[in-house]
């Protein structure tokens, strides 16, 4: 019978589909289930049993999602935070303490004005990858990717190096003989002076390499350092920079020490 042939075919096709779907569903459920050695995601392989050491278990996708990655532990998918704050959002900086924010800022700098080190792994050869987050800046789950404070140079790793080397393998024992470096860097200024209580404060730091005020004071800056009015774009209209801090040419701001007597 010429008509029964296609019917049988379509029937077996349906059965086939059902089987495939069923297997896929089971596979999906198994895949999203709890990882067998769970607890500390990637750390699981440093783990408990001898067998796990010789044959480390590959981490599950969930484990990878939750894995701490150096300082970027808090980084994870959070689409809600992707829009980022706008300069038009109201800002309430009243009562915020600047000092912890400054201490946090100085943790990655040898002195105020030093290029900060990079707290996460980087690829080394493209500014585009840095600027993906650091051009406009980014806030994600309480972490900030600061916008660059200066005009965009294209060789980021010329000045900014990673704070932890990405080399594989066991490191050599550290150079204990070197001891701690005794350098004590210049601290950050806390608050620009005001002529009277509600006068706009002057800029207490140099603006060299910090010409983009919004880097620290904009919507993606640390809360306590933010401006209450980031929508106003002409900062130096009200906040005076200091010619001597900026060492403008012709100011004789660099008195040379005669005969090198410090």
């Amino acid at each position: 019978m010429p008509t029964s042939q296609p019917a049988t075919q379509s029937q077996s096709l349906h059965i086939g589909f059902a089987v495939v779907l069923g297997v896929a569903l089971i596979g999906f459920l198994v895949g999203t289930g709890r990882p067998p050695l769970s607890t500390g995601p990637l750390a699981a392989s440093h783990g408990a049993t001898e067998d796990a050491q010789t044959h480390p278990t590959a981490p599950t996708y969930r484990a990878l999602r939750d894995a701490p990655w150096r300082d970027g532990a808090a980084w994870a998918t959070d689409t809600a935070g992707l829009r980022g704050p706008s300069v038009l959002d109201p800002v309430d900086v009243e009562g915020l303490d600047k000092l912890p924010a400054l201490a946090d800022r100085s943790a990655r700098r040898a002195y105020d004005g030093a290029p900060p080190t990079i707290p996460h792994a980087v690829r080394q050869d493209s500014a585009a990858e840095c600027l993906a987050c650091h051009d406009e800046g980014l806030r994600l789950r309480g972490r900030i990717a600061s916008p660059v404070s200066h005009e965009a140079f294209t060789s980021c790793t010329q000045c900014h190096v990673v704070s932890q080397a990405p080399m594989p393998g066991a490191p050599l024992p550290p150079d204990a003989a070197f001891g701690p470096n005794g350098f004590v860097g210049m601290a950050s200024p806390a608050q620009g002076a005001r002529a009277w209580s509600i006068a706009p404060p002057v800029i207490p730091h140099r603006t060299l390499m910090r010409e983009r005020c919004m880097s620290c004071h904009g919507p993606n800056g640390r809360d306590a350092l933010r401006s209450s009015h980031p929508d106003r774009q002409s900062c130096e209209q009200c906040h005076a920079p200091a010619a001597d801090l900026d060492m403008r040419p012709g100011l004789a701001a660099l008195p040379s020490t005669p005969f090198g007597q410090p």
């Binding site: 000092l99 400054l102 201490a103 100085s106 943790a107 105020d112 004005g113 701690p180 470096n181 005794g182 350098f183 004590v184 860097g185 210049m186 601290a187 950050s188 200024p189 806390a190 608050q191 620009g192 002076a193 207490p204 730091h205 140099r206 200091a242 801090l245 060492m247 701001a253 660099l254 008195p255 040379s256 020490t257």
Partner: peptide, 27 residues
């Protein structure tokens, strides 16, 4: 705190009221 984690770092100085207070600059 910093000494605890990174022994190589020296103590930072307290924030200044103005950058470079008391700092002499030369080339």
């Amino acid at each position: 705190a910093a000494r605890g984690t990174r022994p190589a770092q020296a103590a930072p100085q307290p924030p200044l009221s103005r950058m470079g207070d008391g700092v002499t600059w030369d080339k």
